[in-house]
Every structure is written in structure tokens, then in C-alpha cells.
Amino acid sequence: MNCAGVIRRVSSYIDGDLEATIIEEIELHLKTCRDCTVLVQQTKLTVNLYYDSDLVDYPVEVQARLHQTLRRKICKDQN
């Protein structure tokens, strides 16, 4: 497999979503290709950094409005 082949499959490779023979081919390539090895590592790190990351502030006034809206709906449904 060449570099383009690895790059095309890097996402599925990280997810373990490839057949064993393809994984073997990729890993054989990685043994001798520093660029692809770094690319795979960095792509994995990218995914890990974003997983469940808390990038957005949740303002208290937004929370208060949600609770108020839900309470109104629940009360309306119950009465």
C-alpha cells in the first residue's frame, strides 16, 4: 500500500473498521513511512482531543429559560 492508500483509510483504521488484511498492509507501510506514522498519530490525537470536549459555555440565563419553559409545559400538561 502507498501513502495515498493509508491516508484514504486513516479514519477507518483508527476506528478499527477495516478487514484484517488491510490493517496488515497499513501497518507494514507504517513500519517504513515516518510521514504516515505521524499522520496516523496526529489524527488519533485530534479525535481524542475533541471527544466529549467542553468547548461551549452554558450561560446560567440560558439554563434558567430552559427550566422555565419546561416547567410551564409540564404544568400545562398536568393541569
Binding site: V10, S11, L39, T46, Y50
Partner: peptide, 11 residues
Amino acid sequence: LRGRLKLRQKL
């Protein structure tokens, strides 16, 4: 795939 690669590139 493309999203991950683009993010990696930007990071």
C-alpha cells in the same frame, strides 16, 4: 475522514 484530516491540518 475529510473532517478529521482537515481538523488535523488546522491544528
